Amino acid sequence: MNAKKVLSIQNLTKTFGEKTILNAINLDVYQGQIIGYIGPNGAGKSTTVKIMLGLLEEYEGEIEIFGQRIAKQDPTYKGRIGYVPENAEIYDNLTAYEYLHFIGELYGMETNIIEKKIYQLMELLDLKYAINKRIAGFSKGMKQKILIIASLLHNPDLLFLDEPLSGLDANSVMIVKEILDQLAQQGKTIFYSSHIMEVVEKISNRIILLNNGEIVADGSFEDLKKQNKEGSLEQIFNELTGFSEHTELASSFVSVIEDGDRG
């Protein structure tokens, strides 16, 4: 592969007490890839990302980001990373402008560039009218747009997105998906984690499935289809994670709902 290696994980293992969350993970990620990073709840997805972001320590193995070993505690690599967590803590007593300006300053951006980008990006995402309003009064979708802008304001080379489309309307979803595609074409690398398999299937050029702390699938959607009997990503997901009770559980759930009406 000619693309530049952005991220390298070797034998990454993480335990909490006696429970192993990640079991000897090995992974190389290259420039321009959109990684669909998926797995059941508790599979280790968020743990992997938090370790790479320097939010979790005391792990075994080696991680290099942009050729730099993160164990050296040199935080400079973080300036090239953007992050949208699934459940973000946002300073909602600030206005949108104040919050984004604060984020820009944290990344060492020049004031005039911060201000220019804030106005332009908020206008493009149809938020210009709310630029000086407090985030506390924003809808979930509006807050999500602010988080997306905050993650991209400093033009990062590596982007971690956890359920980034949550709360967005259909038009905004199309815009964000196109943004991610164009960023990848420009050489940005994107980790995309979501439980919405249809989106992961369409947006990713590489899919990594984690189950019980181990990588059980790694390849393009077409690669995964060739290796497994099932067709859609959701079906492949269920096959590889051993989950096949959804139809039976749904039937039981509906039966309980209807039970009172029969009486």
Results as ranks from 00 to 15, higher is better:
Lys4Glu: 11
Ile65Ser: 02
Glu64Arg: 14
Leu53Cys: 11
Ile103Val: 14
Ile81Glu: 07
Asp223Gln: 08
Gly79Ala: 13
Leu168Glu: 04
Ser8Gly: 12
Glu98Asp: 13
Glu115Met: 01
Leu168Gln: 03
Asn212His: 12
Lys143Val: 01
Ile203Lys: 00
Lys143Met: 05
Arg206Val: 05
Lys19Ala: 06
Pro164Asp: 04
Ile135Ala: 09
Leu125Asp: 04
Gln68Ser: 15
Leu53Pro: 09
Leu56Tyr: 14
Lys226Cys: 10
Leu249Thr: 02
Leu159Tyr: 11
Lys78Gln: 06
Tyr30Lys: 05
Ile113Leu: 15
Gly263Met: 15
Pro40Lys: 08
Ile114Gln: 08
Glu89Gln: 15
Gly39Arg: 04
Glu57Cys: 12
Ile38Trp: 05
Val176Lys: 00
Gln182Cys: 09
Ile38Ser: 05
Asp92Thr: 09
Leu55Arg: 13
Gln68Val: 12
Lys225Asn: 07
Ile203Asp: 04
Thr95Tyr: 09
Asp223Lys: 02
Ser193Phe: 06
Val6Arg: 00
Thr15Pro: 06
Ser172Cys: 00
Lys229Cys: 12
Val254Phe: 15
Gly231Tyr: 10
Gly108Lys: 10
Ile35Asp: 00
Leu94Phe: 08
Tyr59Lys: 05
Glu222Leu: 14
Leu7Phe: 03
Glu86Gln: 13
Lys177Gln: 14
Leu27Asp: 03
Glu89Tyr: 15
Ser139Glu: 03
Leu12Trp: 05
Arg80Ile: 01
Asn41Glu: 09
Ser204Phe: 02
Leu121Asp: 11
Gly219His: 01
Asn23Pro: 02
Glu86Thr: 04
Asp92Leu: 07
Ser244Leu: 06
Gln227Phe: 08
Ile257Val: 13
Gln185Cys: 12
Asn11Thr: 10
Gln10Arg: 15
Leu106Gly: 04
Glu248Met: 08
Ile51His: 01
Ala3Arg: 13
Ile196Ser: 01
Met197Gly: 06
Pro156Trp: 03
Gly242Phe: 08
Lys226Tyr: 07
Pro40Phe: 01
Ser166Asp: 11
Ile179Thr: 07
Glu115Pro: 06
Glu18Arg: 14
Lys177Gly: 12
Glu57Ala: 12
Glu115Thr: 08
Val173Phe: 01
Leu180Val: 00
Asp223Met: 07
Glu239Ile: 10
Val176Thr: 04
Val216His: 10
Asp259Val: 01
Asn93Phe: 13
Leu127Ile: 02
Leu7Lys: 01
Asp162Asn: 03
Lys140Val: 01
Val256Arg: 11
Leu210His: 03
Val199Leu: 05
Asn238Gly: 10
Leu125Met: 01
Thr47His: 05
Glu178Ser: 10
Val216Lys: 11
Gln33Ile: 09
Met1Ser: 11
Met1His: 09
Gly137Val: 00
Val176Glu: 07
Leu124Arg: 15
Gln10Ala: 13
Ile65Trp: 06
Asn205His: 08
Gly32His: 04
Glu123Asn: 13
Tyr107Met: 07
Glu178His: 07
Asp181Trp: 13
Ile25Asp: 05
Pro156His: 05
Ile90Glu: 08
Gly167Asn: 05
Leu55Pro: 11
Glu62Val: 14
Asn26Asp: 10
Phe138Leu: 05
Asn171Phe: 07
